[in-house]
Amino acid sequence: MPRPEYTRWSLVLGAARGDTDRRDTFARQYAPVIRSYFAARWRLPVDHDQVVDATQDVFVQCFKDEGALERVDPERAGGFRAYLYGVASNVSLMMERKHARQRKAERTESAVDLAAVERRQETLSQVFDKAWANMIAREARRRLAERATQSERDAERFRCLEMQYAQGLTPRVIAERIGMPVTDVYERLREARKSFRLALLEVLGDHNPDASTADLESTCRDLVGLL
């Protein structure tokens, strides 16, 4: 059963009201972005306990009673990306303070280099933005993959696209591998790119419901610069 799609603010506001499904979607979608940010901020692996804890903390901050999500203002400048960056930034500050206390208490070195964090602020926002752009791309792919479960034709398209971009295969090799005429592979790839493009614009449209097609294309080009 495919998950329902939500516009970003409906997802956010639903999650804020306690809708479990929306909360799951919210956490699944944004966890990689937040993890990337923390990993870069503290120069740690993405699966480091501290990064995982901090990511959890962001969600706790968002979902707790009177938490950050409840103060969401859909009209605010900068959109949802700026909002999420603010929450992650605040959580990291709190954790850094906590680590500073522990460092003193334990007399051991901390994994957090506060001075380094301070001097890398500019880079960190770029890391966040890059992770954001990746998230948009991955979400578009996920939607495409879901649709691929609904028809044989969609499944073929997705498979060709995956073989081309994930495995780096040429249409000719793809044709050999899946036993399809190469002209058909080209046809599937063309259709798949079109579907991906629509999925991409859909995801962006969810985050920017009032944006025109031209605006969304413009956003796409901006995001390419972040990838």
Partner: peptide, 26 residues
């Protein structure tokens, strides 16, 4: 712009998620 997004979407790992050493303050 599509190729860049497709490359990112189908990348096996996220380059932004690579680990890095902590610069040891101690």
């Amino acid at each position: 712009y599509l190729d860049s997004f497709l490359s990112s979407a189908f990348a096996s790992t996220d380059s932004a998620m690579t680990s890095a050493d902590p610069e040891l303050l101690a």
